[in-house]
């Protein structure tokens, strides 16, 4: 019998892989369901793509959800200009390999006023380059739904966020007035100008992400794996000292150390961890005995208590 699949889709290198365990399969099914629901209910969705491990999983799930079709929405990368160089090259490679549409946005005001994490402090810098930049990009595209890779286990205010998280026309989140969300029935009804952030990974934990990356053989930025890299200690964090724009302060010494990153963001604000984990197996076993959370390496979360809720109310993802 002739195949009814398009000719190009017949070759599938993954047919020999072992099936997912029921735990990961349930999480995958839920995420695919959310992707399809949003794509069907909204006029103009977009997927926030930050190039990190959660985004990599999110992208993989999107490709699965719409197979054998193409991912029916563009990816949006809100760049700050201060991302790790390896993230950008990885991103460009992925976009090319998987035939995706990428929209990159850098806040022009931030660029014009030369807003940097060094000159403006992490809080103001994040506000301008990430939160404001995101709002600009969403407004410019007229998107009525934006997928994000946030997980409820990441942070206290996220634990209460819905899978369809409603935003006002100025992108505000009102945590005290959220729509109830029962069963798997999501309410996608909005007025013009309003939008929804959709979180297919809401119920995933950090270990789930890594086990899924391993099971599905999902490509990730090499910075997640341990390697000898040039670093410097600053504000109690070990940061990567590769970028020529990083100026050493008095007393700071650049040295090589075997490190890796547990999360990836802007290099001046992301702390490395000392680790020998060079494989996914290593990372997973390291995680299972870890005594600190992944966001510990993020400067922006430590500015003040409840800082994530505040940022989210203002439109941060």
């Amino acid at each position: 019998m002739p195949s009814i699949l398009p000719e190009t889709e017949l070759h599938n290198p993954q047919t020999t892989k072992t099936p997912l365990d029921p735990h990961l399969k349930a999480l995958e099914n839920e995420a695919i369901h959310i992707f399809r629901e949003v794509a069907a209910e909204f006029d103009k969705p977009v997927m926030l793509y930050s190039v990190g491990k959660d985004s990599s999983v999110l992208l993989h799930l999107a490709r699965k959800a719409f197979y054998p079709g193409r991912v029916p929405f563009p990816l949006l990368h809100v760049n700050t200009g201060w991302k790790f160089a390896e993230m950008i090259s990885f991103r460009d490679e992925i976009i090319k390999t998987y035939d995706l549409d990428l929209i990159e946005h850098v806040n022009p005001r931030g660029a014009a006023e030369n807003v940097t994490p060094f000159t403006h402090g992490s809080a103001l810098y994040t506000d301008i380059m990430k939160t404001e930049g995101l709002r600009q990009a969403l407004d410019a595209g007229g998107y009525d739904a934006a997928f994000g890779g946030a997980r409820r286990d990441e942070e206290a205010s996220r634990a209460k966020e819905r899978i369809y998280s409603f935003r006002t026309p100025d992108h505000r989140w009102d945590p005290r007035n959220q729509r109830p969300e029962l069963w798997n029935l999501y309410n996608g009804m909005i007025r013009k100008g309003e939008s929804v952030r959709a979180f297919p990974l809401s119920n995933w934990t950090e270990v789930d992400i890594w086990r899924y990356i391993q099971a599905e053989d999902i490509p990730i930025v090499p910075l997640y794996f341990a390697k000898s890299r040039p670093v410097v200690e600053r504000d109690g964090m070990t940061i990567l000292a590769e970028d020529p724009r990083l100026e050493l302060l008095p007393g700071e010494i650049k040295r090589d150390e075997v490190i890796r990153f547990r999360t990836l963001g802007c290099f001046p604000l992301t702390g490395a961890i000392r680790s020998e984990a060079t494989t996914l197996d290593d990372i997973i076993s390291e995680l299972e005995t870890a005594t600190v959370s992944e966001r510990q390496g993020r400067a922006i979360d430590r500015d003040q208590s409840g800082s994530m809720e505040k940022k989210k109310r203002e439109g941060y993802f």
Binding site: L5, P6, R36, A39, A40, G69, R70
Partner: peptide, 14 residues
């Protein structure tokens, strides 16, 4: 949830 029609020859119900 949605009808997938990536090409003339394929029509799937998702």
């Amino acid at each position: 949830q949605r009808v997938s029609r990536p090409g003339e020859s394929f029509r799937g119900y998702q």
